[in-house]
């Protein structure tokens, strides 16, 4: 009998050992976690990711390493994250265009629902700006010019949410615009400043200092309310147009990541969301505090995907 107990004990021990890796999930993370940023080092999105990484690292006690995999408007890094194992050790900072528009336009190597939402980090409204010396003073002027001989505009790139949403707006007004890629947000503003295009359509914070100096005039913010860092800029709504457009980015993980891992990340992110560090970061980058938890962010992703499907089909850009 004693022998049997011993064997039983040994068996139990073996079973316990065999199960050990499974139960070890309770202590996620046990090795460095990488956060893929699908843009180059130094972008606003990269800066935010690095702060979040630092806060997560402090919270969990293992390194959270930011890995920049730039290219193709974010879709290369997103594809890379889609190929990583679904174990919670590879997270992705997803952006509007790469996550919800690119898979509709081409074989990007991933689909939007390859990922599950963790938290939205930032959302910024997009705005229309013209050079200070431009004769265009309102959205009305732009539509008039577009109908009379055509107008040009610059965005960070072809197929970006900026490009897609502005084309949709123009189509709804019965006007057609010529799009020119600025190869990045600052590049698009430069094209408006130099007068090469009639207006630029990029995230509102990009304009802040140039607008203050009077070199550029922001004539339409695509949001319900004015933004604090652009006090003189009217919204589309103020001018009688029902048009909202924004870009967001947030953390996502591979679909199929164990639930307990997702839960512990979710708890940590919720804690970070109310931290002072994040608040001061948002203030510095002129970001509106737009933290959303997993459920809220998931809804945002679904809504963007639906909208992009419709617009891209209308524009003939869908694959």
């Amino acid at each position: 009998m004693v022998w049997l107990t011993k064997t039983r004990f040994a068996l139990a021990a073996i079973v316990a050992l065999a199960l050990a890796p499974a139960t070890a999930h309770a202590q996620y993370p046990e090795k460095p976690v990488q956060i893929i940023v699908p843009f180059g080092a130094g972008d606003a999105i990269d800066g935010t990711a690095r702060v979040i990484a630092q806060l997560l690292q402090k919270k969990f006690g293992v390194p959270f390493v930011v890995r920049n995999t730039a290219g193709a408007g974010g879709s290369v890094g997103t594809a890379e994250a889609a190929r990583a194992p679904a174990d919670g050790y590879t997270l992705l900072v997803a952006s509007t265009g790469a996550l919800t528009a690119r898979p509709i336009m081409a074989d990007a190597g991933y689909e939007t629902d390859d990922f599950v939402a963790l938290a939205q980090l930032v959302e910024t409204p997009i705005a229309v700006a013209v050079a200070a010396g431009s004769p265009l003073k309102s959205i009305e002027d732009i539509i008039a010019k577009a109908k009379d001989g055509g107008a040009t505009f610059a965005t960070p790139g072809p197929g970006s949410s900026q490009h897609v949403s502005m084309s949709d707006f123009a189509a709804s007004q019965g006007a057609k615009l010529t799009h020119i890629s600025g190869n990045g947000g600052k590049g698009a503003v430069t094209k408006a400043l130099s007068g090469e295009v009639d207006f630029s359509f990029v995230g509102a914070p990009v304009y802040a200092s140039l607008a203050k100096a009077g070199q550029i005039r922001v004539i339409g913010v695509a949001a319900d309310q004015q933004v604090s860092y652009l006090p003189d800029a009217p919204t589309f709504k103020d001018q009688g147009f029902d048009f909202n457009a924004s870009v967001w980015f947030g953390l996502v993980a591979r679909k199929g990541t164990p639930d307990d891992v997702l839960a512990s990340l979710d708890a940590a992110l919720k804690e970070i969301a109310v931290s002072d560090e994040l608040k001061s970061l948002y203030a510095k980058y002129s970001y509106t505090d737009a933290f959303l938890d997993a459920d809220g962010f998931g809804k945002v992703i679904a809504a963007s995907t639906e909208q992009n499907k419709r617009i891209l089909n209308d524009l003939g850009l869908a694959k």
Binding site: G71, A72, S75, V76, A79, E80, D107, A108, G109
Partner: peptide, 11 residues
């Protein structure tokens, strides 16, 4: 040529 990674071009 069907490689998703090639979308970024030749780095």
């Amino acid at each position: 040529f069907g490689f998703p990674a090639m979308q970024a071009g030749i780095p």
